[in-house]
Every structure is written in C-alpha cells, then in structure tokens.
Design a protein around this nucleic acid. Structure first.
Lengths: 343, 343
DNA sequence: ACACCGTGTGTGCACGCTCCCAATCATCCG
DNA sequence: CGGATGATTGGGAGCGTGCACACACGGTGT
C-alpha cells in the first residue's frame, strides 16, 4: 500500500503505469479489472500487486466514455419539499438505496425536482445518459417526469405503485391493502365497532389502497359502510388533526380510527386529547408506517410496519436488473402489525 | 426542440454533429459551450440553434476526462446511522445543499461511511478524484476520514466546527455559543433561577459550545455553577428522557432546563410529564434546532432556530470557492430565539 | 509599405480507458 | 505430423471533449 504520500496533488496513476509496473500490457490489466477472464494466474497476480503498489484507482470517466454507461444512478424526488422533510420514511429509503448501491460500487446522485425548471433540467440530465437508471420517489399520479423518462427508455423503478401511468413501469411497494386489512381486523378484534379512517391523498397508491383494505374488512365483517367515518388527509400532521376533528363531529360514537400514516396519527392523538377522549380506552388509534414518530407519541402508536429496508434493496435489485437488460417487474412486500399502547 | 423522438435509445448527438449542423468547427461549438468568448454573434447564434435542433447535451464524462474535474461533489455522512434517521436537520441540510449545487448544475453524490469498510472505499473513491470536493457532516471529533481527505488536499467544507483537526479545514456553523446564551438569558428573564442543562455529546462542537454558552450566562448573572444541574446526552430522544430523570434526582428544585437539541427536549418533556411537573409552569424547557419535532410536542417547544438554509448555501459557496482555488474559510451564522409554549 | 495587434476560427492532440483483432503458444485430434 | 482449437497476450482504434496552437482578417501605428 505504498501510496503517493508526498503532499500536494499529483497525477494519479493510470492503467498504463500499472501495466508497466506489472510487466504486462494495458489490455491485460483491463481484463483483470473487468472480471479477470482470459488472464493467466501469474499475470493476474502481478497486476494485482502492481495495483496495490501504485494505489491505482480506475478513472470512471474514461471508462464511461467508452462503455457508454455512467455506473451511477439517480435518486429522484418529485415530491413537494414539505413531505421530504416531514416524512421519516424518505430517510430510511434513501439510506437503504445508498447502501444497496454502494455494495455494487455505484454512487447515488440525489435529484430534487421541485419546480418546473428543475424538472426540465433534471429530465435533460437523465435522458442525456448521465445516469444509468433512476429510483423514483413520487407517489402522486400523473407525474410528467416519469412519463418522459419512460418514453426515453430510461431504466426506472418507482417506490410505490404509480397510478396513472398505464404503461409498464417497474415498482416496489409494501402491500398497502393487506396492511390496512390487518390493522382494521386488529381493531375489530378488540371489540371496536365504529371504526373511522383518515386516508392519505386519494391520488396516491397508499391513499387508495389503504382505504380499500379498510372497506374490504368492514364489508367482510358484515358492517355497513358509513361515509361519516371516512375522511381524507394529506399525510401531514395537521391534516390528521383536522381529520380527527371532522370525524368526531360527524361520528361522535367512533371508538377506533385507522390512520393511514403515523404522522397523521400524531395529529389525531392531539385532537383526541383536546376533545377529552382517552386513547385507547375511548378510541383506539392505529397508524401506518412504523416511523420513529410512532414511538414519540404518548401513548406509543400501534402501527403497520413497512419493510423499508427490503423495499430499498429490492428497488436497487430491480433497477440493476433492468439496466442489465431485463424486463420491468413489480415487487410487493408484506407488512407487519406492530402492537403498542394506542389500541 | 426537435428531439430524437423515435423510441429506443440511439446514440446521442455529439459536439461534432452540432458543429456540422451549425456549419462551424468543433472548436467554435466548444467555445460557445464554455462561456462564448471569442465567438462572433453570428456563429454564436448558429451554434445555439444547432444545439436546440439536435437536442445536444454535453457529455460530462468526456469533458471530465480532459479537464480533470468531475463537476460533482460528495455529501459525506460519517455519523452512525441512527442520528441520520432521527435528526431532521440532516434532511434540511441535504436538501439545501442539493439545491444550491443544482443552481450550478453540479450533481450531489450521497456517501454514507458508517462502517470501516465503507470508510475505506469512500476515501479511495474521493481521493481518486471522482468528486471535486466534499461536504462533510461529521460532528464527532477525531474523524479519520476528514484527516485523510485534508492530507490528500481534497477541497472540504464541514458542517459545524470540527474539533480535533488542528489544521485548516473550512467549516460553516451556526453560532452555537451565542444561541445557547440567548436561550439561557431568556430563561433567566422569566425569573427562573435553577436552570439545568442537557448537553449534547462533549466530543461535538454543538455539545461543547452550547454548554459553554450556558455557563457563561450563568456566570455573568452572578450565579454559582452547580454541577448537579448539568448532564450530557447524545442528541437522541431517549437520552433526553434519561437526562431529565437524572436532573430531577440531582436537583429537584430545578425550574428550567436548556436542552441542546429538540429531539432530546422531546424526551425531557416526556420525563417531566411522568414526574408530574407541569411545563412551563413548574419547569420551563428550551430546545435547540427548531426542528419539526419542536412543533410536534405538547406544549410546543421554545427553541433556537439554526439557519439551515443559509448554512447549506454557505457550505456550497465556500466549497466551490475552494475548488476554484481559494483558501479555506470559516463562516459562523447567527441563530434566532423562537418563543413558543414551553417557556 | 511594413509590422503589430486583438478578435475570430479551424485542427491536431491528448485525456484514460475498453474493445477488437491479430499474434503467439501449448495442446489436442485425426 | 498437419492442422484445428483454445487460452493468453499485445497493441491499435476510438470514445467526446477541451486545450494549445496556427492561422485569417481588418484595423492601427509607424
């Protein structure tokens, strides 16, 4: 590991230097670098020794220039800023993706497409081939950028099922519907009979599917649908607060609420406390996500855990496969009920 | 904007295609791309038209190969994972940096150096020149990676004053000490006389400086130091909870606490509630950060706002200046007291 | 008339790498 | 033993760009 330790920045060693040091040709070094096929053990050894000695690191720009690949992927966020801040899931997802990519030595480029101008700039950047593929986080439907990328044949994996795009886009999602079903079944199993719901935005898959799961279970239990028990939020804390107030006004006899996100559930708890309802005695509250917020509430929140670690690793796996030429694919992962104090 | 709209991926246009289309040489196109000096208005116009017509986008790999720059920067996180999740400041910082860089058309590469192996891999990646500079988020002292990068002459800007590295490293920080002073003065102005503190880790600048500010103000007010009023946390919620319990045990007459982060303040509120102390009537609580957590608590938290948007834009500004050849610099930005319900 | 300047333009070269093809050599088959 | 096969190696070509240089041109000063 004799590095170039004298101060200052001098030119880094090239494949040429390694070849000279090892007494072989550039071609042989390149072959060692790319899998080592058709290289004699002796040459292989010599090249590796030379790499260690010179401290050589491949110049990715030169490589990309010839291969046409960039060996990097973009992590694209088209959400409005606020969600990015408030939603702890993004953190977990971002970290998971970064790590999964790091295992393949692929850097992650973070891209935020908030405004229209940024959207255009980023589309241009991506379609110019500066990244090999895109991990897309954009739950809202009709996202124009996804459509453009798909049209440009850019390998793409969405987090959550994209509504709106009829065409084949890969995605990885938790089983929202089944998670909702499990939570509502749990609430019913506690003897609750007037179960309300605060949904997510109904132009997001999470919003639609979790509501569907709620309705299914109630129907299966033979309970008739009561629209006074259904309100919509936007996943934000305050919208949970407002939603709970509306529910209490419309259906004062409510004895449980299924809230489609932990953050909204925080708001629901606030509103219930203000209204003098005890949780879980008077009203049981179930969240969704198992975000850190679920532990920050009092009482701690019963919730549905989404397997974010697996979601991120699957997103990366599917994306890399697609970059490698495979077809688009959909992956749906199971959720898990986490019982705490609020039910 | 006649793009290559037929499906499938074909070779993107090169500078050569643009030159042919515009009826000029590659050199002229290159000059237009890089500032447009020494180019006649007619040629300038023709080139721009040709760029629009062909949908040309510069190939950054080819450019990087010749210039030696990568036109990208790394955002390096050496914190252990947990902090990354829990601390909402990272989000704001990350977003701010990404946007500030986007204004210069510079992509941000997210790098997580949690384990020793990752640390080595990333150091290698960076020192190989794959990024032009690094935005470093690592409050703990004695971070070996910072030392290595500095030794390799990699442009570097830290978030928060790095302790430990004696050498000149650029950094941008909020005025921790002054913010702490302001909060403690505020608590004293409310008539509180037994003011406790839950510090951050004392190997971080935030931990040290905020404690120093606390001590200074108490000394200036002529109050004698009482070590029973001082405990340390690690910025996590639970450490705030434990810290408050210790304070209550050591100094039951405490009538105010300055907590060095909002997250820990959340824990402090939990512990105070459990102990039957009313906030702010019995004990006033002041946080630090003005993170979203400050609004999630009941009562809402009085806190010190750190100017994260300015911190991130300054970090980018200083880094780009340094990449451009300027000297290392330190920037300290003022904080602001945000009064809410907890004091 | 000459040299000189600054502006504007075209062209060869190099950046570091992968790919491809030809050359070499040992081995094997008929 | 001739030729075919396969493993291994070397080296040329070229990826798309910026840079250095040479050159053309019109105007200015001598």
């Amino acid at each position: 590991m004799t590095m170039n330790s004298s101060g200052g920045r001098r030119k880094p060693p090239t494949i040429h230097d390694v070849a000279r040091e090892a007494g072989v040709s550039r071609g042989t070094v390149s072959r060692v670098l790319n899998g080592g096929h058709y290289v004699s053990p002796a040459a292989h050894e010599a090249v590796n020794a030379a790499i260690r000695k010179t401290g050589y690191v491949v110049n990715r720009h030169a490589r990309s220039l010839i291969t046409g690949r960039s060996d990097s992927v973009g992590f694209l966020l088209t959400e409005p800023q606020e969600r990015f801040f408030e939603d702890p899931n993004f953190n977990v997802l971002l970290r998971g993706c970064t790590q999964a990519l790091a295992a393949h030595d692929i850097p992650l480029l973070l891209m935020l497409a908030g405004t229209e101008g940024e959207r255009r700039r980023i589309t241009r950047y991506i379609t110019a081939g500066h990244v090999d593929g895109v991990l897309l986080v954009s739950s809202h439907s009709g996202d124009p950028i996804a459509e453009q990328l798909r049209a440009a044949d850019v390998p793409l994996v969405a987090c959550g099922k994209p509504i709106g795009l009829g065409s084949r886009v890969s995605y990885v999602a938790a089983d929202d519907r089944d998670g909702a079903r499990e939570m509502v079944r749990h609430l019913l199993s506690l003897g609750r009979r007037r179960v309300g719901v605060v949904t997510g935005p109904l132009d997001t898959p999470g919003g639609v599917e979790r509501l569907a799961g709620y309705r299914e279970v109630l129907a299966e239990a033979g309970m008739e649908a009561d629209e006074r028990l259904v309100v919509s939020g936007d996943y934000s804390r305050v919208s949970g607060e407002l939603g709970a107030e509306r529910l209490l006004a419309q259906a004062p006899d409510m004895d449980a609420v299924f809230v489609a996100s932990d953050l909204m559930a925080q708001g629901v708890l606030t509103a219930l406390e203000r209204a003098g309802r005890r949780v879980p005695q008077d009203v049981a509250v179930g969240g969704f996500d198992d975000s850190p917020a679920a532990l920050a509430t009092r009482p701690e929140l019963t919730t549905i855990r989404q397997p974010w670690d697996r979601i991120s690793s699957e997103m990366v796996r599917v994306l890399l496969a697609q970059i490698g030429g495979e077809e688009a694919a959909a992956v749906i992962l199971p959720t898990e009920l986490v019982k705490r104090e609020s039910t």
